[in-house]
């Protein structure tokens, strides 16, 4: 061979060419798929929000028609952003509640509590008979982030349904938080007592959560840390939002 492929200059040249070619391929691919991926994420968020309120399978809402169906339930112009005390937050006009990335904000250690945004989606579209309220929540599981949406009924107090999801919880154990049997346990419980005080949720191990509609929820066997993560996530968020609903109710 004419070139000495073990020479330093060839080694450098080879490395530079290879990295440039691979970099170019990956950058093109990423750029080319960006819109699609962004749409997918948006649609997934819409499905997650809706599934806290309704049975999306029964309503026939899939990835394909989510974008058309979503406005029938939720008009994003009704959505509001609260601050950490549960008051309406003065935000940039351009910041939409739907675009608030609470996962990122929750992770961001430099962001003070005052600066965090707490979006609230209000469902009063034509397919919703009485106004529902949907609260996004985010927290930590055993291995990675967990998140979800909690839908309150028109009384701004009773949980209509929840949808939880996770990134990397243990399959068969912590990962079960996104299964119907676990999410159903939250239904019909109230986030405030008769005096309007926030009621803390408790994830328990002793089967005392079997009674539906109270604030004790049966955890997942073998998924204790994830279950506790859900408990912390729900309590931290609902406490903030309950302030808003209490003020709204007392007016």
């Amino acid at each position: 061979m004419a070139i000495n492929k073990e020479s330093t200059s060839f080694t450098f040249g080879f490395a530079i060419v290879l990295v440039s070619v691979l970099g170019l391929i990956l950058a093109t691919l990423s750029e080319g798929l960006k819109e699609r991926t962004k749409d997918n994420i948006k649609i997934k968020k819409q499905l997650d929000i809706l599934s806290a309120m309704i049975d999306i399978e029964k309503e026939g809402i899939t990835r394909d028609n989510a974008e058309d169906e979503f406005p029938n339930y939720i008009n994003l112009e009704d959505a509001i952003i609260l601050n950490h005390k549960g008051e309406l937050k003065k935000t940039d006009e351009s910041l939409e509640a739907f675009d608030v990335d609470i996962k990122k904000e929750n992770r961001d250690k430099t962001l003070s509590n005052e600066d965090k945004n707490y979006p609230l989606f209000i469902a009063k579209g034509k397919k919703v008979d009485k106004t529902k309220y949907i609260i996004p929540v985010v927290g930590k599981g055993l291995w990675g982030p967990i998140w979800g949406y909690i839908c309150l009924k028109e009384d701004m107090n009773t949980i209509l349904g929840v949808s939880f999801d996770h990134k990397t919880e243990t399959p068969g154990l912590g990962a079960e938080i996104n299964k119907a049997f676990f999410m159903d346990r939250w239904k019909d419980s109230k986030i405030m007592d008769e005096q309007g005080a926030f009621v803390k949720y408790e994830v328990v191990k002793d089967n005392s959560g079997a009674i539906k509609g109270d604030s004790k929820i049966d955890g997942i066997t073998g998924g204790t840390i994830t279950s506790k993560g859900v408990e912390e996530m729900v309590n931290r968020s609902l406490k903030i939002y309950s302030n808003y609903f209490r003020n709204l109710n007392s007016k």
Binding site: I25, L29, S30, T37, N40, R63
Partner: peptide, 15 residues
């Protein structure tokens, strides 16, 4: 690079 391609294609087409 191949793994990133798999990851990106899955995220775009099989989310």
């Amino acid at each position: 690079s191949l793994v990133i391609i798999v990851d990106q294609v899955l995220a775009a087409f099989l989310p």
